[in-house]
Design a protein around this nucleic acid. Structure first.
Ligand SMILES: NC(=O)c1ccc[n+]([C@@H]2O[C@H](COP(=O)([O-])OP(=O)(O)OC[C@H]3O[C@@H](n4cnc5c(N)ncnc54)[C@H](O)[C@@H]3O)[C@@H](O)[C@H]2O)c1
Ligand SMILES: NC(=O)c1ccc[n+]([C@@H]2O[C@H](COP(=O)([O-])OP(=O)(O)OC[C@H]3O[C@@H](n4cnc5c(N)ncnc54)[C@H](O)[C@@H]3O)[C@@H](O)[C@H]2O)c1
Lengths: 208, 208
DNA sequence: TTTAACTTGTGAATTCGTTCACAAGCCGGG
DNA sequence: CCCGGCTTGTGAACGAATTCACAAGTTAAA
């Protein structure tokens, strides 16, 4: 990849793909940057610029072929393959995620959940086994998961992250409300719901 | 407020507050922008600039008083009061959120969850009642919640949002993976986990 | 009182992301 | 085959956010 692509661009590509899949299922053949923009709450120039970082996929005067562009986006986003995911922390949020069908549908296969609590180990969550965290290293060597989802208490998060990193996993989705430290070659994304709520609090407080 | 403040700034303020509370609990009296920056993975100039939009809270040569700055940030973020929250959709993720203590701890009081499914109505989730969605309008008039959390299926999300907006609620946290339309005076934040995973997929695919 | 070590607050410079604006290309109709 | 309508792709302009860099203020020590 020649240029560093902004995070915001990647998020929009992901959104475009969602819309394209919707259009595809309705049997539409082509779509213009303007239509895509309207659907995504952005501008047509933004759409074209986003796509232009990766090539030129459209036809002037016509627009984009829906299936072709969807294919290109899947390729760019790395969604051609099925990604293997493990969940660490089979608590309330971990269980909800394990049972969520949306991930599977988008090509993310959840292999297992891990927990330290004896009571949870051995159970199944909608078919997904809850395993003992002490098995983590062995299992990772065998199953080679690509992504780990962290849903352990905040106090444990950094310790668990370090352990996960040591197994060689390079991508982590963290739900603990903490700032985590990881080596540069490991990508960590944090979903912090308290922060989102505080953003709403700010918005409610500071309106004109 | 004189200037429009960037979303990214508000998020960082929220993070700073978290660190300050940590420092506060450890009994530290003052903190420098450099320490705050290190903790938050940013730079000291960024910290000072963020704060400077709202006033000057520090002492040159010394740093910031931990309790004072924490108080100022709470004020800026509107965390002086307790915000009332309702959850719409008592499914897997809605239930996890309803049972999450972290929100209460940070001043977000969950009043109730609402659902359309008869089987769920009338139950309690860790003390939080699940009510019939048909009661929504009446209850909102009475309880005056400030924030609605949407955890309904994606197909329902826009319809439910419109209904919530009509009750006069001005802040919404949406978990459905859809782009939602709302009037300009309503703030909608969407947490899209599939998009986060696709961001990880992109990162794994396009490394140097 | 002077000095050295720190740290803030903030214009200015820079970097990054978005929007503009238009040449270039495609299509269908006459 | 040419014209009018439409849409892409992209430099250039713009605007927003971050980083730099330093004067100004604080403290402690001699
Ligand atoms: N529940 C929510 O809705 C919600 C929302 C936002 C954020 N979060 C965050 O997600 C995390 C989990 O929250 P939760 O509500 O699911 O809590 P929870 O207590 O229900 O679940 C945590 C699980 O992690 C397990 N665990 C603890 N230490 C572990 C370790 N070292 N290795 C493996 N497993 C370990 C526990 O046994 C437990 O099952 C927390 O950081 C929380 O702040 C939760
Ligand atoms: N479960 C997860 O981990 C997860 C993760 C990311 C996103 N999401 C999103 O969150 C939403 C909910 O997911 P879920 O897994 O909790 O699904 P779910 O089916 O368990 O829950 C949805 C709930 O909404 C209720 N509902 C449906 N229509 C309603 C209406 N009109 N009014 C009130 N209630 C209504 C249903 O009765 C159900 O209880 C979906 O949009 C999903 O894509 C879920």
């Amino acid at each position: 990849m020649a240029k560093r692509i902004a995070d915001s661009t990647v998020r929009r590509l992901s959104a475009y793909l969602r819309f394209l899949e919707d259009f595809e299922s309705r049997g539409l053949e082509t779509i213009s940057s303007e239509e895509l923009a309207q659907r995504g709450g952005t501008t047509s120039a933004q759409v074209r610029k986003d796509l232009s970082f990766f090539g030129s996929f459209g036809k002037r005067g016509l627009g984009y072929s829906v299936p072709e562009l969807a294919g290109r986006l899947r390729e760019i986003l790395g969604l051609g393959k099925e990604w293997k995911v493990i969940i660490i922390g089979a608590g309330k949020i971990g269980a909800a995620l394990a049972q969520y069908r949306g991930f599977r549908q988008r090509g993310f296969l959840i292999l297992a959940a891990y927990d330290a609590n004896e009571e949870k180990i051995g159970r199944k969550l909608e078919g997904i086994p809850v395993r003992d965290i002490t098995q983590l290293e062995r299992d990772v060597r065998q199953d080679r998961p690509d992504i780990a989802v962290l849903t352990v208490p905040a106090e444990e998060a950094q310790r668990v992250l370090d352990r996960v990193v040591k197994t060689g996993i390079k991508a982590i989705l963290n739900f603990a409300p903490t700032q985590l430290q990881a080596p540069a070659d490991v990508t960590v994304k944090t979903v912090n719901m308290a922060m989102e709520l505080e953003g709403l609090s700010y918005a409610l407080t500071n309106r004109d």
